[in-house]
Structures are given as C-alpha cells and as structure tokens.
C-alpha cells in the first residue's frame, strides 16, 4: 500500500497560540480519511498545511513519498474543496470548472469534452452558463467539487464541504461524495466537526483536540474503543466514570459506557448484570424512534439510556423517580487518562 500523505512532526503556532503540536499522520492511497474535532482543534490548519496555503514551523509534509514541505500550492498535485466553495464570482459555472484546464493550456476541444463529462458526473448539465450567484447552495457545492475533480487529482482535500447545507441535502451529498470517491479512486481528506458524517463516510478517522491527534482509527474502533476520555466524550453519547468513581466497581482506570449497553432494571425480573447503580430520572427527551432518558446517579454524573418507543411493553418513566441501572463489565471501555 502506498502512502498518499505523510505528516512528520508538524507543529504550527500563531503567536502564543499552539495550533498544531507534533502531528504525525500517514494517509494511504485511495483512503477516505477524516480529520474530526471541535472548532479550534487544529484540523483546518492541518488541511491548509497539506494544501500548502500555510507553512509549518516544524516538521515535513510528504506527498507520495516526496517531500513537498517547501513546494508552493500550485505545484502540489492535490486539490481542495473550500468551506465557502470559493467559486470565482466573475466567471460562469463553465469557466469556473475549466479554470485549471485554461491555466494548463489544455486544447479547447479537450477542455470542452472534460467539462461536459464532469458536469454530467455532478449532475449540473444545463447550468454551465450561469454565474455562481444564480445557484443554490447545493449546486455551488457541486460546482466546487467538479472544479477540483476535473484535474483528476490523486488527493482531494475537503474542508467542511457540507457545513452550509441543510440536513436532507447533506445526507444526500454524503452518499454522492462517497460514490465519487469510489468511482475516481481518489484519496479524500475530509475535515469535519460532525461525528456522524465522519463515522458514516470514513475508512479511518483522526480525532483532533487542542492541536494534538487523540486517536487514529477506524470508525468502528473510534466509537467502540475510544482510547481517551476526550474521544469517548466527543463521539456519540456516552457516560464517563472517572478513576475515583471507577474504583467503586473494582476498576483501576476510568471507563465509559454507551447508552445502548445500559438497561433499566424492572422490579419484576432479577438480573445478572455485573454492575448496578441507583439513579434518578432528570429528563426524558423524545427523539422519534427512541426516548433518551437522562438519569443522575449517586456519583453526580448524568447517564443517558435509550428506550425504544415502538416497543409494545413500554414502561413510562417518571421524572424524579429512582430506578436501578445496570450494565455488564464486558461492555465498558477502559480509558487511558
């Protein structure tokens, strides 16, 4: 397997603010790789350094085993889809998409052929003479995609490309992006703060926090085997038992437990689960297919439990009432810190 991108010890600070701290990443060729983290965690800075828009104070960037640390962006064989799309407002859709071909002085016939091809791929036939200002958000997104894909780059960088779209459109674009990636067999490096997006699309995810990479893993492992309490907390809904509380369960490290592994003990049946705690209902949130019931335990942390709403034998829980929650030792995740 070839390495598309390698980051070797990248550090970057803006004045006294450390944006990236000793980042090491290896991204495989053809991989869908996400940089996930809250805003200000350094994921976009990392992308800008890969693209070459920003330099780093320390470390090296390798593109297909070639050191490109000092190579300007226009000489790097990769393309970017920008968060605000960055379409040229004075050019039509067609000239926007054909921009890189004109720069490379590709002959006109070839230009037109490739533009028509890509217009079809992103389903924008008939819109080619419009100005970006005459398009909807989703259409602009497609133009931005087409413009960066027309060169058939080996690596495509995407900076929160779906952030400005509404939920329905976003879900539809997620599927299309994934299909495009498979079709062109390009390495995608995808920056997002949306964990659902990262989990559903990526082959691997790097979770960023405070300029550091907390964990690099497959979506399955990121969700089920988070290494740090930050990752456990950031991805999905979880309850964390810090070290002090964990000792009550005879566990020496802090651990987390997902709501789907917690059950509420009904008075009739006696259960055989490993751990039991008393907790009081503080809130019940209707979520459509399930209820999210929030408990407060004697450890003063809140636990979420899911209850299927389409279950016939539904018990209606009351706020402020105490119940016994239980879970198994095998379902907990031990955390490093």
């Amino acid at each position: 397997m070839t390495n598309a991108i390698e980051l070797l010890g990248i550090s970057k600070s803006y004045g006294s603010v450390q944006a990236l701290n000793n980042i090491h990443l290896t991204i495989n060729d053809g991989e869908f790789f996400s940089l996930l983290g809250p805003s200000g965690s350094g994921k976009t800075t990392c992308l800008k350094i890969i693209a070459g828009f920003e330099g780093s104070q320390e470390g090296h960037v390798k593109l297909f085993n070639e050191d490109v640390t000092l190579v300007p962006p226009y000489k790097r064989d990769l393309n970017t889809v920008f968060q605000d799309y960055a379409l040229f407002p004075h050019m039509s859709v067609r000239s926007n998409i054909g921009y890189s071909l004109r720069i490379k002085k590709v002959n006109l016939e070839e230009q037109n052929k490739r533009i028509d091809e890509i217009l079809e791929t992103v389903k924008l036939i008939g819109y080619d003479l419009r100005k970006p200002s005459e398009l909807s958000g989703g259409q602009r997104q497609r133009v931005a995609l087409a413009r960066s894909l027309i060169n058939k780059p080996k690596v495509l960088l995407l900076d929160e490309p779906l952030g400005a779209l509404d939920l329905k459109l976003r879900e539809q674009m997620q599927i299309e992006l994934k299909n495009l990636q498979r079709k062109f067999n390009i390495t995608f490096i995808y920056v997002t703060h949306d964990q659902q997006e990262a989990l559903s699309m990526s082959d691997r995810i790097a979770v960023f926090n405070n300029g550091r990479v907390e964990q690099i893993d497959t979506p399955h492992n990121i969700y089920n085997k988070p290494k740090t309490s930050f990752v456990a907390d950031f991805i999905g809904i979880t309850t964390i038992f810090p070290k002090e509380d964990a000792s009550q369960f005879n566990i020496t490290k802090s651990f987390s437990i997902r709501p789907e592994f917690i059950s509420i003990q009904s008075s009739s049946s006696s259960s055989s689960k490993d751990f039991k705690i008393k907790a009081k209902v503080t809130d019940i949130q209707y979520q459509g297919s399930f209820n999210k019931i929030i408990f407060e335990s004697s450890f003063r942390n809140s636990l979420s439990v899911f209850q299927n709403t389409n279950n016939n034998e539904n018990i209606s829980y009351k706020i402020d009432q105490e119940y016994i929650l239980e879970f198994d030792k095998k379902d907990i995740t031990l955390l490093d810190d």
């Binding site: 962006p73 226009y74 920008f82 960055a86 004075h90 890189s100 720069i103 490379k104």
Partner: peptide, 24 residues
C-alpha cells in the same frame, strides 16, 4: 479563499493576480 482556490487549481501568483484579483 478565492486566492487560495486559484493557487490550488494550479495558477501561479502572477496568473492569480491577472485572472482573479484584477477582474474583481
């Protein structure tokens, strides 16, 4: 981001100036 986009698409700084910055 428009300037970055132009560089990203292979235009040098000079080309970016004449094709993006000056027209705008």
């Amino acid at each position: 981001s428009l300037i970055n986009a132009s560089l990203d698409l292979g235009a040098s700084k000079r080309q970016t100036f004449y094709k993006v910055i000056l027209p705008l």
